[in-house]
């Protein structure tokens, strides 16, 4: 396996922690994604090799759950809520505004690698609907204009901001 730039020492360390635990695949993948930002192919093969789980099964799990991604995401991950309350309060309009502002659709990343857009089922902040989360920050009571303004704020901060 080509190792590209993936540091496999990390995943090996994780796998040592879960030695003998046959039910921890999801936790292992979660921690791998937390570290790498996504699930690199090399890491999946390493899990397979050490755990003795076929790569197809690992990929089956990874693609079943919406949390896992097989490609890197932008610096700012926008999770746009499309739950019932957000839907009733105009989430479609917010999605349109975000797409217009960033020129990306659901599941895509901007060319500069700054933003990724992902629609999600419910963030549980229904009383502030419509809602979106950018990394760990939640923004509620959005209007299309307000959403665009927030994104412009992030754009202005560019790649430097935390």
């Amino acid at each position: 396996m080509k190792e590209n730039n993936i540091d496999l020492a990390f995943i090996r360390g994780i796998l040592r922690e879960y030695e003998g635990d046959d039910h921890a695949l999801i936790e292992i993948l979660q921690r791998a994604q937390e570290h790498y930002g996504y699930l690199p192919e090399e890491a999946i093969y390493e899990v397979s090799r050490i755990k003795g789980i076929p790569p197809a099964k690992i990929l089956g799990v990874a693609t079943f759950y919406t949390q896992f991604r097989l490609r890197p995401v932008g610096k700012y991950l926008i999770m746009l809520c499309k739950g019932t309350a957000c839907h009733v309060n105009g989430a479609d309009g917010i999605e349109k505004a975000v797409s217009e502002e960033l020129n990306i659709k659901d599941g895509e990343t901007t060319e500069d690698g700054l933003f990724s857009l992902k629609t999600v089922a419910c963030l549980g902040c229904c009383s502030l609907s419509p809602v979106m989360m950018i990394n760990d920050e939640t923004y509620g009571s959005l209007t299309p204009e307000k959403a665009k303004e927030i994104l412009r704020g992030y754009k202005a901060r560019g790649g430097d901001a935390e």
């Binding site: 499309k82 739950g83 019932t84 309350a85 957000c86 839907h87 089922a121 419910c122 549980g124 902040c125 229904c126």
Partner: peptide, 10 residues
């Protein structure tokens, strides 16, 4: 808690 629109468990 997966039902969109419910957040009491949270």
């Amino acid at each position: 808690e997966g039902d969109p629109g419910a957040f009491m468990d949270r």
